[in-house]
Computed example of a mutant assay.
Amino acid sequence: MPVRNTATARQLRLGAELRKLREQAGVSSTEAGRLLGTSQAQISNIEASRVGVSGDRVRAMARNYDCTDAAFIEALAEMAGERKRGWWEEYRETLPESLLALSEVEHHATALRVAQAITVPGLLQTPEHARTIFREFVPSLPPHAVEYRVSHRIKRQVILFRDEPPRYTAIIHEAALRMRFGGPETAAAQLAHLLSMSERPNVTVIAIPFTATSFPVSGHGVDYFHGAVPQLDTVNIDAAHGGQLIDQTASLERFRTMLNRMEEVALNPTKSRDLMHRIAKDI
Rank of each mutant, 00 (worst) to 15 (best):
P2W: 09
T6Q: 13
R19P: 03
A25T: 06
A25M: 09
G26W: 01
A32H: 06
G33H: 09
L35M: 11
L36K: 01
L36D: 05
Q42R: 15
N45Y: 12
R50H: 14
G52M: 02
D56E: 15
D56L: 13
R59K: 12
A60L: 15
A62H: 07
R63P: 02
C67E: 12
A70T: 14
E74M: 07
M79A: 14
W88D: 00
E90H: 12
R92I: 03
R92F: 01
P96W: 02
V105Q: 14
V105H: 10
A111V: 00
L123F: 01
F134D: 01
R135Y: 07
V138C: 04
H144L: 05
V150P: 06
R156T: 07
Q157G: 03
V158M: 10
L160Y: 07
E164K: 15
P165N: 14
R167G: 15
Y168F: 14
I171Q: 05
H173D: 07
A175I: 07
R178C: 12
T186H: 08
A189G: 13
A192T: 10
M197E: 04
S198C: 05
E199V: 00
V203H: 06
V203G: 01
V222T: 13
D223A: 08
Y224V: 02
H226D: 10
G227E: 04
Q231C: 03
V235Y: 08
V235H: 04
N236P: 00
L245A: 05
I246S: 09
A250I: 07
T257M: 10
T257D: 12
L259K: 08
R261Q: 12
M262N: 07
N268A: 07
P269T: 09
D274W: 13
I279R: 04
A280C: 03
I283N: 06
